[in-house]
């Protein structure tokens, strides 16, 4: 029972941590390279945990991120929903990919996410972002193997599902 509770807290804790690290600023030089943390953590959980991540959870998490970000309510909810839907749909295949293939898949998902964001922003009347805006998915994909292995390792050590 307490093991179950621990794993639930671990799950919620990583998600809150991802939201917080979205808010933590980086030095100016590194700012364009900041990956989209909530997406990476949600992807990890949707691949690893069978029934915890659902579209509703992604929606709620996106709403929370929107409230924190203060940009447009529903923007990140939309993006995270699309991302989690694709990840869940191809979950069985993504899980058995070798790491480099999985990284490529994550890169495609993150790129798709950026395109969605671009569409939303253009519809909202914002100007087109500069070229360095497209760097973030690359960084996210490059970090994915490390994040995946780290989270997996921590999960094994804590012996939680």
């Amino acid at each position: 029972m307490s093991r179950q509770r621990l794993s639930l807290w671990w799950f919620v804790g990583t998600l809150v941590f991802s939201l917080l690290s979205m808010l933590v600023p980086l030095p100016d030089v590194l700012a364009p390279f900041k990956p989209y943390w909530p997406a990476l953590f949600l992807l990890y959980w949707s691949l690893e945990s069978n029934d915890r991540v659902s579209l509703g959870l992604a929606f709620l998490m996106g709403l929370a991120a929107d409230l924190l970000d203060g940009v447009l309510l529903g923007e990140q909810a939309l993006r995270l929903c699309a991302l989690v839907f694709i990840a869940l749909r191809f979950r069985s295949r993504l899980r058995f990919f070798p790491m480099w293939q999985q990284t490529l898949a994550v890169f495609a998902l993150l790129l798709n996410d950026r395109v969605l964001l671009l569409v939303v922003r253009v519809f909202a009347g914002d100007p087109l972002p500069p070229a360095s805006w497209w760097v973030a998915p690359f960084v996210g994909a490059a970090l994915w193997p490390f994040l995946f292995l780290l989270l997996d390792d921590l999960r094994m050590r804590l012996r939680i599902q």
Partner: peptide, 18 residues
Amino acid sequence: LRLIFYLALAMVLMVLDH
């Protein structure tokens, strides 16, 4: 269907907010 529902909800929220 669930995806479409949530996407529509998000879009409604965005439009209302905008």
